[in-house]
Structure formats: structure tokens, C-alpha cells
Design a binder for these strands. Structure first.
Lengths: 233, 233, 233, 233
DNA sequence: TATGAATGAGAATTCATTCAT
DNA sequence: CATGAATGAATTCTCATTCAT
């Protein structure tokens, strides 16, 4: 079963055991697992707590899921799928040049990290606790995400549009910066997700040291610079 | 007690129960704890495993330490102290200008992440599991580290030597990039720690968008640009 | 309810969930219970497995039967009834002398152990797990079976046709030997049930040490010796 | 660890939680396991009950043994070893002729079934519940016991001293009869173990249909016939 | 007739910790 | 300095059973 139905990533209401309607136990449980895993970590969390948080019995958890491990796997897998969908959608609607594609990827990633902040944190912290049928699949997906970033950067370097000497380190730095957002972003803070994305687009472009563009003044590449309100040109 | 005596950060030999010499149980145990916590996470690790790995009995663990929590605290605290010593030492021997200071901090951080890779990972993952006497102290230390970075960047921005529009995001990006090193760096890989530091110095300077320097062509700022073999000046 | 409709004793096809026809759930379930109880023992078996094996839902099991215990009772009771019918039928069609009656009982028992091998094993192993309404009834039946054997042997001893000094031990030995057949008999093995019965008739007669018969050279006593291909007379 | 120290096979005192002396938990637990497994069967017994019966905590059980399965294995293995020792000792001190050897084996087996009645029952009922490292070893031992019986009988048949037509069925009958003793023998009953053994020796000799002996009226073969007080020669 | 959803009790096992020696 | 023995609380998970539909 997939857990993608539950869009809300936030551990809403923390403890709201609002009488789960019959038949919807599966979602209630993954939602609860998300909260509890995020709060205490996979090994620190007990499925008793998960069931309690979901307002169901421990046995109901085993009716819907095959165990603690599967609960984690469902969470992570659903997250990764959502992330890939987000990236693909962003890349599909952008120019073909490396800079535009890099910007699109940054925007998609920031969007995802903000929108599914909790899942992002869980993924970052608890990935290691995945056991074997699931682990392999997700490792592969994770690698293909890395490849997505790297290919774009390498292409930019080849085309002389990015001037970084160490493309792998550039990629790592950009990814690390974007991923870290989930750790500090406060949904009720003062910065809008869209605005935040543009700031990180700007950072990413600086990391790859994009060459100043004489031509190519089209939509994708221009906004970041402009919208981030850099003090002076 | 402090555990700083054990410099070696690597889980060397993994399982080497080489007859702990009388009296050195304390270090053997923190070393073992480091390995086991790193491998399985704080909650995933059992102190039985720690004792076994150290080649001692469970009771010996309780002779030397007051419990599992204290073992974690000792590890993290020792790590943070080492980090601060490293940073202070680096800042003490550098110029007073923001760029030089930022570079020094990056070098110190990269050095630490590489030198104490395992402790860095544990700190990143298990900090949340610290309970109250210890937690507060370390949170404070952690905040003062953040302040260290932020002050330098803010000063650079004020002096117009850094041109980034969002200094806090710049700081976060730099820290995230440096911290992530512990997650991927392979000690027997192909890049030297010193060389790696220069690459990250370069990345950091790009993130803060350092203004091109007309004068001031002294040691600290020049190397990164040069050594990273950027295609064109 | 009785389960005697299902003649086939073999756990045929093990796992054949062949679309239970409407209304025949009861038999499908006792058949499945037979297989599962035989494979894993009463306490080792779960009624979930029984229902699954029967190709029905757990709830269906509770529609047809009142629980796990009743399932076991139905199985055992049906077996005992079959056994008694078999014995009575055999005794009804034989001579009145102890030797003939003993032979008839052996034949009936061997026939039953071979024909309902699985039920025989379950009876031997799981009888102890019967709880109270059922247990008493079956204990009584079991005792009356013992009485059946003992009476015949005692009569033979009284009439000097059996010469065993310890009739109870003789009875126990004969019963044990016959019962054990269920544990090793392979339905697709090389010995026919009828042939096997004659071998055990021969063994039983030796155990009771039947006196050599001058007259009475009729069917029952002759075959074993002859048909068993004794090397030399 | 072995459990052979505890010679007493009887579930003595059933529930006597007589303050286990420190350090002797291992034996107390196997003794308790013997009782509980015998009473309720392996799957029907809970290790909670075992620990309670032993007068120890559940955790102590895991200190001494690695689990429920190991407890069963220890019990069965110790029993089999004792049985083999008993058989070997009996065969070592007897004549070389098949009849004497068969008698010795019967005596050893009856002795064992009476002396370790409970272990015998457990072995008969719970053998199937042994899981893999242990199962294989014990299956092998069990087969070699069967071989012991069969070899003797086959030799007797070859030497024309036993006249049974179906040596394998004879062996099965004898073994079944002897094994069954554990199921009905009451230690405080009216028959002495030695006496019982002679009765079964007599039964066994009749099952293999030993040829009447003209010469050879020595110790080993004579007693059974004589001591069982057969009515008349 | 049948089922999908749910439950409470209890299963085996592991944990951090303590105590007597 | 160190250990072997023991514990109570908690863990994940399975069980037989029931209820609403």
C-alpha cells in the first residue's frame, strides 16, 4: 500500500486521537508513524506509541502493516516517489540549458524539503535503518537522484557555462545546502517557500560559478539573480 | 571524565577485542561506544554490544561510566571541545579580515570533519538523544559555533567584502556543505584533507560572493582560487 | 456437526485453495484443519493458517465452527467414531473364538491407521489438548477401545488359546505396534494395506503366544505364515 | 551447556519454587522446562511458566539459555545421549549372539523409558518442534538407534535364530512396544522396572519368533523365559 | 453466507541496570 | 578493578476472537 494520500507532512496537532473512521486505519497509522519517527527516531520510537497516536490498537497496526520496518519503508518510499515526481515535473517545464535545469532542480528540491519537511528529516536520519528488501530499492533511487544533479552540472561544466573546478564537490555542496533546509525551516517563519527557493537558486549558481551571460536572457536564468534582490549589480 | 585521549576517530579493526590492558577500560569503552553508536545509532545500539566490542564485561562498563547516556554525552562533548580548540587555533593564527577568518574557519571545520569523521556523524545523528543535564550545555556550545560563523559573515557583508544578500542562508549553506563531508569522505580515497579544505574554502567564498580583491594578495585568500585550478581567472 | 463426510485423510495438494464451492465451507475448513494440525501441532497451528489453507476468511471459520478447540474436537471425534465403526464391522463378520476376534481387531486397526493416517497421528499427538466438554467423552471412548482389546485377550488366556503370562502387557504391545503404523507408513510405499494387516496379525498372534492349532485351519490364521514368504518351514 | 547433571527425571514436587541457590539457575531452568514441556507440550508451554516454575525471572532464563528452542534441544539431546550410553553399556556386557544382544537392547530401552519417563514422552511428542541446527543432529542419532535394533534383528534372521518373515516390521513392533512404556508406566505402580524389562524381553523374543534352543542354556537367554513365569513349557 | 476491520491478551525476546562477590 | 548472576520494564509481534456490515 502507498501512503501518498496523506499530503500533509506536518505532524498536525500532535496527539489528536480524533476517532479514526472505520476502514481508514492504514493512513492514520502511517501519519502517526511519521510523527513518532520524526520525534524520537526509528529505534527510539515504539510502535505502541505509533498505534496510540493513531488512536488505534497495536493489533490494528499489524492488520494494516506488516511491522515497524514496513512502516518506515512506506514512509521513505512514498517520500522519494513524491520527490522524483516533483523533480521531473520541474525539469519537464524548463529550458534545456544546464543553468535553467539546475535552477529547476534547486526549486523542486527546496519546494520538497519545505513541503515535506518531516519526511525529509526522517529520510535523512533513518535511511540507515532500512533493512533489505527495501534498502536496495531506495539506495538505487537515491543514486539516480544524485546522477540527476551531477549530469546537469557536468554538462554545464562541459559547455563552459559553469566554471567550477570540482563538479562533484559543487554538487555535494548544493545538495547538502538544500537538504539542510528541512532541519531549520519553520513553516510559520518569515520566509515564503518561493522566496527561499530563489535564494538557494542564487547560492547554487554561485557554487557552480556560472559564467556571466551576454546572450540568453530568457526567463529561467534571469529571475534568480533579479528576484533575490542582490544589493547591486 | 573526558575521552579526548583517544585521538583515533576511525573504528579501526572493528571487533578487535585485543585484551584491554588493566586500567584502560574507560577509553576502551568510549572507543567501542563510538564504533557501535556510529554503526547502529544510539537507540539501535545496546551497551552489551559496546562492552563486548571493548572486550570487557557489562559490569565493567558501569564501573567506568554511569550508563548509556553518559557514554553518548562523553563522546559528543569531547568532540565539540576538540572542534572548538581546532577553530580557535585556526583563528588565532590568521589575519583579522573577514575573508581570511572565514577561510580559516572552513579549513578548521573540514579538518575536523575529516579527522573525526565518525564523531561528526554521531554528533549529527544522535544529538537529539541527549538528555537533560548534558543537552543544554551542548546546545549552548552548538549555538556559539553558529555565532562564530555568522559573526564573520556578517562582518564581511558590513565591510562590503562579502556581497551575499542573505547572510544567514549563506552561513547555513556553508555549514551544511562542510558538515556533509563526514557523510561521504573516504579516508582512503583520492583526495587529501588539505586539498579538500581548499576546495571548500573556494566554495565558501563563492557562496558569500566575495568581492574581487584589488589589493590584499596575501597568502590566505589566494591559494583557494589558484589551487582549485579554476579554468580561467 | 460431524466431519465424517470427508473421507480422504491425506493432506492432498497441501495448499490447494481451489475456490471452495458455496455452502461447503464446513468441510473445507475441517480438511484444512486436519492438514495444519498435522503439520504443526494444535498449539503450533494458527486458525489463520487453517482459514487460509481452506481458501476462506477467518470470519468464515467462525461461522462454521465455534473456535479452534471445536475444530480439534470435531476431527478427533469423527476419527474415533470411524474407528469404532470399523472395529464393529470387522468383529460382526468373524468367528466367535478369541484368535479370530483378535485377528479381526488387528486388521480393522491396521486398516484404520493406514486409511486415516493423518487423523491417527493427530489423535496420538493432540488428544491431550482437548478441553473439557470434549475430553471426557473421548477418554471414555478410548477406554472402551482398550476394553475391546483386553476382553478378547483375557478370554483367549482363560480358554488357554493364548499363553501370555501378562495379558495387559501383551495388549499394550499389540496396540502400540498397530498405532505406530501411522507414524511410518508411506501411502505410496511398497506394501499393500491388506498385506500389512496380515503381517501385524502374525505379530499379534506371536505376542499373545497363541497355542498351536490342530484343527481350525481356516482363513484367518493360515495366510500370514504362508503369504509372508517365510524362508523355510 | 549440558543438562545431564539433573538425573531425576520426575517432575518432582510440581511447583516447588524452593529458592534457587545463586549460580544454579541453569539446571533449575532445564528441570522446570522438562516439567512444563511435558505437561503442556512445547508450543502449549510458555517460557514464562518455565521461569516461574524454576523460581527465577524470565530474564534469568535468557541469561542461562538462548531461548525456548535451545531449552528443548538441550532436553532432547541430553536424553538421547543418556539413551545411547545406556545401550552401549548394556551391549558391552553381554554375549555376542543376536538373541542376547536383542535382550540387552530391550532391557536398556525399558530401563531408560522408565528411568527417564518424562524425557521419553517429550522426545516422542516434541521432536518435531526441533528447528534446524539441532534437528539434523538428533535425526541422525535417532537413525543410528534404529540401525542398532535392525542390525541385531537382521543378524538373527540370517543366522536362523530369529524366524520372523518381516524383520523391519518386527523391529518397528518391538520399538513401538518399548517406547509406549513411557506413556503408561506409573513409577509408584505395582511392577518393578527389572521385572517389566523381562516381560518386554519375552515379548520381543516372541515378536522375532526366536527358534527353540536345544543347547546354549546360558545366562543371557534363559532369564527372560524363566523369569516371566510363562504358564507352562 | 460471508467478510474486512479491529481488539485484548499473551507470546518470545532484548534492554539498561543492579547487586553480591 | 572487574565479574557473573539476576531483574523489571519494555520491546516487536502473533494469537484467538468479535463486531459491524
Amino acid at each position: 500500500m502507498t501512503v501518498s494520500e496523506s499530503e500533509s507532512d506536518e505532524p498536525g496537532g500532535s496527539g489528536t486521537t480524533s476517532a479514526v473512521p472505520r476502514g481508514s486505519g492504514g493512513v492514520a497509522l502511517t501519519d502517526a508513524a511519521r510523527e513518532v519517527f520524526a520525534e524520537r527516531g526509528y529505534h527510539g520510537a515504539s510502535i505502541r506509541d505509533v498505534a496510540k497516536r493513531a488512536g488505534l490498537s497495536l493489533s490494528a497496526l499489524y492488520y494494516w502493516h506488516s511491522g515497524k520496518q514496513e512502516l518506515l519503508a512506506a514512509l521513505l518510499e512514498d517520500g522519494v516517489n513524491d520527490y522524483f515526481r516533483t523533480c521531473e515535473s520541474a525539469l519537464r517545464t524548463t529550458e534545456a540549458d544546464p543553468a535553467s535545469r539546475l535552477c529547476a532542480l534547486v526549486r523542486a528540491t527546496v519546494d520538497y524539503r519545505v513541503r515535506r519537511r518531516v519526511d525529509s528529516t526522517i529520510a535523512a536520519q533513518e535511511f540507515r535503518n532500512l533493512e533489505q528488501p527495501h534498502a536496495q530499492r531506495l539506495v538505487t533511487l537515491r543514486e539516480s537522484a544524485t546522477r540527476l544533479w551531477q549530469d546537469i552540472i557536468d554538462e554545464g561544466v562541459r559547455d563552459d557555462v559553469f566554471r567550477c573546478a570540482y563538479p562533484r564537490d559543487a554538487r555535494r555542496a548544493i545538495q547538502a545546502a538544500c537538504n539542510a533546509i528541512a532541519q531549520w525551516y519553520a513553516p510559520d517563519g518569515d520566509v515564503e517557500p518561493g522566496e527561499l527557493a530563489e535564494r538557494y537558486v542564487s547560492i547554487a549558481l554561485r557554487i557552480v560559478d556560472r559564467a556571466p551571460q551576454v546572450h540568453d536572457r530568457r526567463k529561467a536564468s534571469a529571475p534568480p539573480r533579479g528576484s533575490t534582490a542582490d544589493p547591486a549589480p
